[in-house]
């Protein structure tokens, strides 16, 4: 049932399962992106001894230890992430100015059966949530793309996409932090610096943050 006085359980009937992944890691599996973010935030706030990395996934949090963990470390993770107790903390909100008009905007519009302007309007009107990071440093998968804008990845990835390209890949949208190869559909570009290893916070986006795009 409900947790301590004044606390509002966010996921009253949901399951969480902790499984060992090899000798030095375990994977906490939950049933939603929101539960994954809540568990990730909770585990980050704990001082779990000997943890080398915490990685948020779409339905999971991976905990990597520096050495083989003992049973008490695993029990501490389980008790801290009881789904009845997890709460969603609001993340930061980012507004990103985008010059729409990338080389695949016409393709996305054609697939959606919409005018270019309408694709731009719908992409810029939605609010996105940072689901998880991956692919390259600072690359965030943004959840919340309107269904009509879902566009399959290109059959052949481009060898070189400029840094700051705003793109759509399947159900996700995102911004390429650095120049490099990629298979997503390019619909615009931004001057925002998503990743800079010399900054105190190298990565602009963290799992759970909200992102809005503004037409520049």
């Amino acid at each position: 049932m409900a947790g301590a006085r004044g606390r509002r359980p966010a996921f009253p009937s949901r399951r969480a399962e902790l499984r060992r992944v090899g000798e030095w890691a375990c994977l906490l599996e939950v049933e939603s992106l929101e539960a994954a973010h809540a568990a990730y935030a909770t585990l980050r706030s704990l001082d779990l001894g000997g943890v080398r990395d915490l990685v948020a996934g779409a339905r999971s949090v991976l905990v990597v230890f520096a050495e083989t963990p003992d049973e008490s470390a695993l029990r501490a993770i389980e008790s801290a992430t009881d789904p009845r107790e997890l709460r969603v903390e609001p993340g930061r909100t980012h507004e990103i100015a985008v010059r729409y008009g990338g080389s695949d905007l016409d393709d996305v519009a054609r697939r959606a059966g919409l005018a270019r302007n309408e694709v731009v309007r719908r992409h810029a009107e939605a609010t996105y949530r940072v689901a998880f990071l991956g692919f390259q440093p600072g690359f965030a998968y943004l959840d919340g793309l309107p269904a009509e804008l879902h566009t399959p990845r290109r059959a052949t990835p481009r060898p070189c996409i400029p840094a700051g390209s705003v793109a759509i890949g399947g159900e996700w949208t995102g911004v390429y932090p650095a120049e490099g190869p990629g298979g997503w559909n390019l619909i615009g570009s931004t001057d925002a610096v998503l990743f800079d290893p010399s900054r105190d916070a190298p990565c602009l986006f963290a799992p759970g943050d909200l992102v809005r795009f503004r037409i520049a």
Binding site: D53, L54, V55, G138, A140, F195, C203
Partner: peptide, 11 residues
């Protein structure tokens, strides 16, 4: 790199 995966950085 420990604790860098959260920035999308490979270890």
């Amino acid at each position: 790199r420990a604790d860098a995966a959260r920035h999308g950085i490979p270890p």
